[in-house]
Computed example of a mutant assay.
Amino acid sequence: MILLISDLHLEQERPDITRAFLHFLASRARQADALYILGDFFEVWIGDDAISPFQREIAQALRELSEAGTRVYLMHGNRDFLIGKRFCREAGATLLPDPCLVEMGSERVLLMHGDSLCTLDVGYMKLRRWLRNPISLFILRNLPLSTRHKLARKLRSESRAQTRMKASEIVDVTPDEVLRVMTEKGVRTLIHGHTHRPATHILQINGQAARRIVLGDWDKQGWALQVDQQGFHQAPFAL
């Protein structure tokens, strides 16, 4: 069995989500062969050198899961793209590239956070290209902690304000980009998060059936996608 989750946006201000996640790790995740976390695991991450006691507690819980036999995989999101090797070592997790091809059963599946599929959001895509540039990443990681804290608050505030103002289709994935990426990677199943719109979308690619599975965010309830011999099943659960 494999479990996939995303968009928990963990922060001290939401102890309900933290409690639910720690319970999830100690119970359901212990039965899984692998746990994939597809981005926006934390609400904000300003660098591995600024890890807080709260974040260290999460890392320790992930390590305990890993040491119990469940492989843990982590992908960057748009909120926590500065997570680095140090945190992953502490958490016993493997950092995945975005996008990433994996084998699930007899099928090759494409995993993404999902923000790179929102190509109609031109302003965000420009910012994303700048933030993910290796030179920009080097500069960001070497800024004073106080400056990084201020920058994170500013970006977070602006992101929330702009999302409220943008049309629904702009902050969702672009259908043509989904088809392009899936065709390029040669897959019939894409799994991603980011949009907070859990669903399974049935597609056609070159005359063949395909699907895009969108993971749910953890807010009013939690979500997990389970992959087993019966297929792909996503369901919410109470926090």
Rank of each mutant, 00 (worst) to 15 (best):
E90A: 12
E90N: 10
E90S: 12
E90Y: 15
A91K: 01
A93I: 12
A93F: 13
L95N: 06
L95Y: 14
L96E: 00
P97S: 14
D98T: 00
P99R: 06
P99D: 09
C100N: 08
C100L: 09
E103P: 00
E103K: 01
M104I: 15
M104T: 13
M104H: 10
G105D: 08
S106H: 11
E107W: 11
V109R: 01
V109W: 00
L110D: 07
L111H: 00
L111F: 01
L111K: 00
M112K: 01
H113F: 04
H113G: 00
D115W: 04
S116T: 12
S116F: 05
L117S: 04
C118H: 03
V122Y: 14
Y124A: 02
Y124S: 02
Y124P: 02
M125Y: 06
M125K: 07
W130Y: 13
L131W: 06
R132K: 13
P134E: 14
P134G: 11
P134R: 10
P134S: 10
I135P: 06
S136G: 12
L137G: 10
F138D: 15
F138C: 14
F138A: 15
I139E: 10
I139K: 12
L140T: 09
L140W: 08
R141A: 11
R141Q: 13
R141T: 05
N142W: 09
N142Q: 08
N142L: 07
N142K: 11
P144N: 10
P144Y: 11
P144E: 09
T147K: 14
R148N: 05
H149S: 05
K150Y: 12
K150H: 14
L151P: 09
L151N: 11
L155M: 15
R156V: 03
S157T: 09
S157Y: 09
S159Y: 00
S159F: 00
S159H: 02
R160Q: 14
A161R: 01
T163N: 05
T163Y: 03
T163M: 03
R164L: 04
M165R: 01
K166D: 09
A167Q: 04
S168L: 00
E169Y: 09
I170D: 01
I170V: 04
D172N: 04
D172C: 03
V178D: 04
V181I: 14
M182R: 02
